[in-house]
Computed example of a mutant assay.
Amino acid sequence: MKKKLSLGLAMVICMGALSGCGGSEDGTPKPISISVVSGSMSENTPAGVGVKTLVEKLNEYGGGTIEATAYYDTALGDAKSMVQSLQNGTVDIGVAGSSYFSSIVPEVQVLELPYMFDSYEQARSIVDGEVGQELLGMFEVKNMVGLSFWEIGFRQLSNKDREIVNVEDVKGLKMRTLTAPVQVSLWESYGALPTSIDSSELYTSLQQGVIDGQENPLSEIVSKKLYEVQPHVSMTAHVYTPMVLGMSKLTYDKFDDAQKEALNKAVLDATKASRDTVNQMEADGLVTLQEAGVSIVMEPNIDEFKEIGKESYTIFTEKYGNELIDKINAAKGE
């Protein structure tokens, strides 16, 4: 009798404190609250647009069982700390450039090898295909779920001194580049003097002449107004920079099948929205540069840049072999 009374009392207490028992006042389960973070990217960037769309669609497709909130810029820390937080579960979903995830899955650097891709169509087909799925699958053993590849875009070269048509034109330029060993080796092979400068200090460094040039997608060159202090842009498209959309496995494992289905649908919509933003910003960016009087070299000597650039692949293959590169080339029909 006492046992039955205790059980009944426990049920009453539970019903009276639904927040502690995972329920709401009307008896329905409480929605899972999740954070969706754009790393250090603002709301008007491709990453920001993707995050906004992902949050909207998660809340819609989840049917009240998911309560997602977007965080932009560095509201929950920078991109590096965000990746760490995804692993320990203090951030639920986040996106950042693949280089930030390379300490977890170094093989992802294969996508950023010089002249790996010739177009957005080609790059997207690869990251959405078997190679991309293989790379995303590598995150699971690192306590993370790889959801999709978004992108920052193809990187272009800008500088303050001269038009860049041939590799010879790059020699002697003090260049702010990505810090990855392959990227440093790339610019050294072109005769540039690569250096590392935080993106927050890039405009000032260019303005003050600390460096002569930099390389970034058009969306960054325009949004950060780098063209104001960089009157020459060459469309070298030397590196494709993807972003990884990752989720904490601790959070993912809390989702039931219906919530996982909602997640998959939302990711597809958000990926499209982010890529559409890249397309639009690329087109608008060229117009902005032209209107600002920037000298644009639309057709530099790509064959020369490509031939020298591919020599840096050995830095990757010596550690991780040729298998992934061979799979990408096979998928491209090469």
Rank of each mutant, 00 (worst) to 15 (best):
S99W: 06
Y100C: 07
Y115Q: 04
D269E: 15
M41A: 13
T251G: 06
V55R: 06
M41T: 02
L54Y: 06
G137R: 04
D253C: 08
Q122S: 09
V167Y: 03
A270D: 00
G8V: 10
I221F: 03
M298T: 11
F316D: 03
D118G: 15
A258N: 14
G48Y: 01
F139T: 00
S200Y: 01
V91S: 10
Y252V: 08
M247E: 00
Y120N: 10
S85K: 15
A330L: 11
D269W: 01
S199F: 13
K272T: 14
L268V: 13
Q122V: 01
E130P: 07
I325S: 09
S234A: 14
A10G: 12
M144I: 12
L58D: 01
F101E: 03
K160N: 11
S85Q: 15
L157H: 03
S125T: 05
S295P: 03
D169N: 13
S125I: 00
K174E: 09
K260W: 00
K225W: 00
K260R: 15
L111A: 05
L202N: 02
G89P: 09
A123H: 02
E168C: 08
P300G: 09
Y61A: 01
S205E: 02
V210L: 14
G191S: 05
V297R: 12
D161S: 11
M243S: 08
K224M: 14
M1F: 03
I13L: 15
K4Y: 03
V222D: 02
M1R: 10
V12T: 11
A237L: 08
P300M: 05
N44A: 15
V127R: 07
T179N: 13
Q214W: 07
E201M: 13
L226I: 12
S200R: 08
N329K: 15
E215Q: 08
V297N: 15
T45Y: 02
I32T: 07
Q87Y: 03
P31V: 02
L9R: 12
G23P: 00
K332M: 06
I325A: 10
L18D: 08
H232R: 00
T53P: 00
G39V: 01
N322W: 10
S38D: 03
T74Q: 08
